[in-house]
């Protein structure tokens, strides 16, 4: 921790987040644990990928990272500061340094805002004033950075395609020159051709501006291409942390994910391992391993005892019977 450049930019320390739902007015209050005891360092200047299926808590983790949601248990430290300990004004100032790009470009821009308004809003919020000419110039430069024609500044969101809107989202995130950007499935609702464009843009911006990314995705193929490190989540918990994209996976769930990814190569068709069993409900978590019901290696121990995330070297896995 002595060298500030080697210290992680973001740290999750035993973070859990519960949501409660009530069945009707007099109904029983039920609690769902969306994120369950995640401890994770996000190294500076790297792309950390978080991959998992819907309901695995990856989007909740993204929001916990930026304190858009408060942790129920545990702490999130950004640049060493516990975000929950900050006063509202201090937290708002801190948000300059950590930004987010959202999944749905169609609803992430206020329909009443022109593209210029949307890109300039971060400055307005932080009381950074521009003369009209400066503002115009600044917006144009941000749009250019995101690969957009500066002429689009006068347009409204409904006049733009999904890919263009996502570029606006990126321009907005860059406005305040942040250190960390959380990318919450930024390409999930785009065509593959546009997805590849956006990923190329993000890679270029990262190397030019020295950004750190937390990249949330359901697409393991994409995560393996784009990220330096991969966190695999299942039912709210990190089950495996791969230190590099070519590290051999050790958790049976990661293997299932790998096998499910469709390669663009008809010569290498895979027989899909049949998954039996349903994903357990996050309202009633099993006492043992959450993946046991679908795992072909599951033993009695897996149903009874919850595996903890054990780190060997830089590789971490939470499994009683890890693969070799």
């Amino acid at each position: 921790m002595s060298d500030p450049m080697s210290a992680p930019i973001l740290r999750f320390d035993g973070v859990s987040r519960d949501f409660s739902a009530q069945n009707g007015f007099f109904g029983r209050k039920r609690t769902m644990r969306a994120v369950d005891g995640v401890t994770l360092d996000i190294p500076r200047g790297k792309v950390t990928g978080v991959v998992g299926e819907s309901g695995c808590g990856k989007s909740t983790l993204a929001r916990l990272a930026l304190h858009l949601l408060k942790p129920s248990i545990g702490h999130v430290y950004f640049e060493g500061n516990d975000l929950a300990g900050l006063k509202p004004a201090a937290l708002r100032r801190q948000r300059r340094h950590m930004q987010m790009v959202f999944q749905d470009p169609y609803s992430s821009i206020n329909p009443r805002f022109s593209i210029r308004d949307a890109v300039m809003e971060p400055f307005q919020v932080h009381g950074i004033r521009h003369t009209p000419a400066e503002g115009k110039e600044r917006a144009a430069r941000l749009l250019e950075m995101a690969g957009l024609d500066p002429q689009l500044a006068e347009h409204y969101p409904h006049q733009l395609s999904g890919g263009q809107k996502q570029r606006v989202g990126i321009a907005r995130a860059l406005a305040l020159e942040p250190n960390l950007i959380v990318l919450d499935e930024p390409t999930a609702s785009l065509d593959v051709s546009i997805q590849a464009q956006i990923i190329a843009l993000l890679a270029d911006l990262k190397s030019r501006l020295g950004l750190t990314y937390l990249f949330i995705s359901h697409d393991l193929g994409l995560v393996r291409y784009f990220c330096d490190r991969i966190v695999v989540m299942y039912l709210g918990a990190a089950v495996e942390i791969l230190p590099s994209t070519d590290a051999p996976h050790r958790h049976p769930y990661t293997r299932t994910l790998m096998e499910s990814a469709f390669l663009p190569d008809p010569e290498r068709r895979r027989a899909v391992t049949r998954l039996t069993g349903e994903i357990p409900s996050a309202f009633e978590r099993p006492p043992g391993c959450a993946f046991a019901t679908r795992c072909s290696f599951a033993s009695g121990r897996c149903y009874a005892e919850k595996p903890v995330l054990l780190t060997t070297g830089r590789h971490a896995v939470a499994c009683h019977h890890p693969l070799d």
Binding site: L68, R92, M100, S108, V125
Partner: peptide
């Protein structure tokens, strides 16, 4: 629940800004 409201909070907007610029006009 609109994403642009969450987006406004994520860039550091206060309550008044969110209400006056994003919620009430819409």
């Amino acid at each position: 629940r609109e994403t642009y409201v969450e987006a406004a909070v994520s860039i550091g907007s206060g309550h008044m800004h969110v209400l006056a610029r994003h919620l009430i006009p819409n």
